[in-house]
């Protein structure tokens, strides 16, 4: 889908601070996966590369989910005694 130019992917420069504006723009592009998609589509990705990438991404997502759950478990705050073991 085409977006309106100078409305989409646009950042205003404030106080003549161009670098900050660029950083915000690049952060948005990186976060939305636009730059990643651009880099990936420069060259044809062979089917075996595609399979390997997708499998790696799946494994990474599972690992990250588990790790987040573990971290949330350790950091949970609804305990009666916040520091168990302390006198």
């Amino acid at each position: 889908m085409r977006h309106a130019s100078f409305i989409a992917r646009t950042v205003f420069v404030q106080n003549n601070d161009v670098e900050a504006a660029c950083r915000v723009l690049n952060r948005i592009l990186g976060r939305e996966g636009i730059l990643e998609q651009y880099r990936r589509t420069r060259f044809f990705e062979k089917p075996f590369q595609f399979r390997r990438r997708i499998n790696f991404e799946k494994c990474k997502a599972i690992y990250n989910e588990d790790m987040d759950r573990k971290i949330q478990f350790v950091l949970r705050k609804n305990r009666t005694e916040p520091f168990p073991g302390n006198p």
Binding site: S5, F6, R9, T10, V11, F12, V13, N16, V18, A21, C22, L25, L29, I34, L35, Q37, Y38, T41, R42, F43, F44, E45, K46
Partner: peptide, 21 residues
């Protein structure tokens, strides 16, 4: 005096087949 910065990098999620790597 630069007012705004726009990115217009052409990115497609179903592009034609790119050149070989």
């Amino acid at each position: 005096e630069i007012v705004s910065i726009t990115d217009s990098t052409p990115v497609s999620w179903n592009p034609p087949r790119p050149r070989k790597a």
